[in-house]
């Protein structure tokens, strides 16, 4: 009962995320919505597995949790840097000749 309530809550939250992904003024909003949607999908899958008594669904939840991150990074990197190939830096680039 409570689990179904939790699943319903997650579904509503996911719908709101879809709304943000469609509206989202900037692409970062859309990426954020997609990422958050993915996290909620993971949780929803876990809950569904329990509600239907099929804990094997957790394997799929696990893979979502991993894939979702890679997709988010790819989208972020694509939109920020227009490249999939260049490495992300760790240092602050020197500017204007100081330092």
């Amino acid at each position: 009962m409570l689990l179904i309530g939790a699943a319903a809550g997650l579904l509503v939250a996911m719908s709101l995320m879809i709304a943000r992904a469609i509206m989202g003024p900037s692409h970062y909003d859309r990426i954020l919505a997609a990422n958050s949607f993915g996290t909620k999908t993971v949780l929803l899958l876990a809950i569904i597995g329990f509600v239907f008594g099929r804990p094997a669904f957790l394997d799929i939840a696990l893979v979502y949790a991993l894939i979702n991150f890679v997709t988010t990074i790819a989208l972020m990197k694509f939109f920020r840097y227009r490249s999939l190939a260049a490495p992300l830096t760790t240092h602050t680039p020197k500017e204007g000749g100081n330092g």
């Binding site: 319903a8 809550g9 997650l10 939250a13 958050s36």
Partner: peptide, 8 residues
């Protein structure tokens, strides 16, 4: 789920 909803 409530927390997720608030976040959404």
């Amino acid at each position: 789920a409530l927390l997720a909803l608030i976040g959404a």
